[in-house]
């Protein structure tokens, strides 16, 4: 469902974060993108999630070529992805529930239905009882779980996470990865960028190893 061929991303200024990368991710796969820091993991994740546009090469998502997509079509493509960022990007001026509601408001779901689905998503990550709290009152692990709830509430076909366990202790990190594994089990394609090698032995994912922007 995601096919990259000779994919490159050069940032203004000339730095080439991803160089001539080709790979294929099938529906329902769990894929880890690993590599040392600065290897291009974040850029590759952003390319897959259509947050960045490739400089050259092609990236097909569900048969749509991202490089050829009109700017106005990109928001609709992004709705196929659930994104979890390393820094979570939660909105601290609104409640936990309202954070999860945002993706549903974007697609224009009626409020009652949206609340029902947001609560279901919060339940899945074990935060239903905290729905009225502000994100600032949550622990690091809880904030990451909130980010996951927001990413999955719209029932995306692909769940993409960038260093989701980066700032967490081992126990919280395990919880987070268990949640991803659970989504993988129900058929969601999961792509996780991480520099942490410990998880590979445990989940036997497909691994894309990056080094200085190239695939090893």
């Amino acid at each position: 469902m995601i096919v990259a061929s000779s994919l490159s991303k050069r940032y203004p200024g000339g730095f080439e974060a991803v160089k001539d990368v080709s790979f294929q991710i099938s529906a329902g796969q769990m894929v880890f993108i690993t590599g040392h820091s600065g290897a291009g993991k974040t850029t590759l994740v952003k390319l897959i999630a259509s947050l960045e546009r490739p400089t050259s090469g092609s990236l097909l998502v569900n048969g749509q070529n991202l490089s050829a997509l009109r700017r106005s079509a990109i928001p609709y493509l992004r709705r196929n992805f659930g994104m979890v960022f390393q820094d979570q990007k939660l909105l601290f001026d609104r409640s936990v529930l309202d954070n999860v509601l945002l993706p549903l408001q974007i697609v224009g779901l009626p409020r009652r239905e949206a609340i029902r689905r947001a609560q279901a998503a919060l339940d899945k990550v074990g935060l239903l009882l905290r729905e009225k709290a502000k994100p600032i009152a949550l622990s690091g692990g809880e904030q990451q779980r909130l980010a996951i709830a927001r990413a999955v509430v719209n029932r995306p076909t692909v769940l993409i996470a960038d260093e989701p366990t980066g700032n967490l202790d081992t126990e919280s990190a395990t919880e987070i990865l268990e949640i991803f594994a659970a989504f993988h089990q129900v058929g969601v394609t999961v792509v996780i960028a991480t520099h942490d090698q410990n998880w590979i032995a445990r989940y036997h994912p497909n691994v894309l190893r990056l080094d200085h922007g190239r695939l090893l």
């Binding site: 947050l51 106005s72 992004r78 990007k89 909105l91 974007i106 990413a151």
Partner: peptide, 16 residues
């Protein structure tokens, strides 16, 4: 700014 950035990343259209 934060809200706009997040909304864009999760598929908000310009109109939204």
């Amino acid at each position: 700014a934060m809200e706009i950035e997040v909304a864009r990343m999760i598929g908000a259209t310009d109109a939204f």
